[in-house]
Amino acid sequence: MSTLLALPLHQSATVLDLATPVDLTRRLAAMGLRRGCQVTVLRRASWRGPLQIRVDSHTELMLRRIHAAFITVSAEVAA
């Protein structure tokens, strides 16, 4: 158990739960970031900027750190 914010770079994990604001949760679901999907943090922007996240293998998106802190993921052991 970890949050998306704390997930080390380039480590794949499964999303367990989203406690983000309702609007954002809906938007993220439409972008494919929902319970059960695979996520990887590709990089973090400077000045405490957003995270670049790959969702499954089809979408890349940016998400602010304050919101990534509300997404729980299960970190798998990297193969």
């Binding site: 983000t20 954002l24 938007r27 993220l28 970031l33 890349e60 602010r64």
Partner: peptide
């Protein structure tokens, strides 16, 4: 500004 937003990086 803390508007929740997520943006695709195409």
């Amino acid at each position: 500004c803390s508007e929740p937003f997520a943006l695709e990086l195409p």
